[in-house]
Amino acid sequence: MRVDELSAVRAARPEAVAEAAERRVPWKGAQGRLLIIAADHPARGALAAGGDRLAMADRHDLLERMCAALERPGVDGVLGTPDVIEDLLLLGVLDGRMALGSMNRGGLAGSAFEVDDRFTAYTADAIAKASLDGGKMLLRVDDDDPATAATLEGCAHAVSALAAHRLTALVEPFIARRVDGRLRNVLTAEAMCRAVSIASGLGATSAYTWLKVPVVPDMERVMAATTLPTLLLGGEVPDDLDATLAGWRASMALPGVRGLIVGRTLLYPPHGDVRAAVDAAAEVVR
């Protein structure tokens, strides 16, 4: 199926999504370090990449970029909300790939309620029913915002529910605060140590919990804060991709780091070449 055929198929045969999920060849499990392509940003209203405020709003373009990335050797799978995962299932590009479902997207980017990150996408039961490999949740801890408590509770329930299905719970934690009315993540080693410590204790068991964390200065201290397997995230599109790759390479040697989970940095690289950016990241992982 082609990208330009998706709308017609969705309109005429909505059951095709479930059929595609049933046909999907399952992922066989990690053979080493992982490289995962992330594309769950649009559902939270975060559409910018680099200097283009609406880059990720073009769904056809996004899917074509993701398909190009998935063609490259060394890419293990994807992270996405149901709409993205289901488009990729219909396109038939997830056979043998890891597929992680994004769960809480209700804390819309730039909103007054951003910290109150409701679970508005996948549930643990839906992830299990679709035969996906795990679920991801975002946790921003703002000590000045009471809504943080509800998000903590929601993430804890999701960790427990995924573990009951023996599925990976991927938690992306930050300490956050308002700066000029905008929610900003605090990217220091001290803040990340606290965030990682909070995330590690969520749920009735941590047996199936992994973490997703940014590369920050003094990364050794951050990784010393947990025994949980950890993936490094990409964040915003950098002006200097080589410097970002160097940071990933240095952190990849730390105990507990199991790979990369990157979205805009690879899908919308500064030089515009998705395949080259993915190949460079795959080399870092290898």
Rank of each mutant, 00 (worst) to 15 (best):
R2H: 15
D4Y: 11
E5Q: 15
R10P: 06
R10G: 03
A11D: 12
A11T: 08
R13I: 07
A18Q: 11
A20F: 04
E22W: 11
R24A: 07
R24L: 03
G32S: 07
L35P: 03
A43F: 00
G45F: 08
G45A: 13
A46Y: 14
L47R: 06
G51T: 12
R53W: 11
A57E: 13
E64N: 15
R65E: 09
M66H: 09
P73L: 10
P73T: 05
G74V: 06
D83S: 13
V84L: 12
D87S: 12
L88S: 01
L94T: 07
L94Y: 05
A99C: 11
L100F: 06
R105Q: 08
L108F: 13
D116C: 10
R118K: 14
T123C: 06
D133G: 06
M137W: 00
L138H: 04
L139F: 08
D142R: 03
D142C: 11
D143F: 14
D144A: 14
D145L: 06
A149R: 10
A150S: 12
T151M: 01
A156C: 10
H157L: 12
V159D: 03
V159I: 09
A161N: 06
A163M: 04
V171S: 04
F174S: 03
A176D: 01
R177H: 10
V179I: 13
L183S: 05
M192S: 08
S200H: 05
G201W: 08
T205E: 13
W210A: 07
V213W: 03
V215C: 11
V216K: 09
E220M: 08
A224Q: 14
A225G: 10
T226S: 15
G235Y: 05
P238N: 04
G256D: 01
V257S: 08
I261A: 15
V262R: 02
R264N: 04
A280G: 05
A282H: 12
E283T: 15
E283Q: 15
R286I: 10
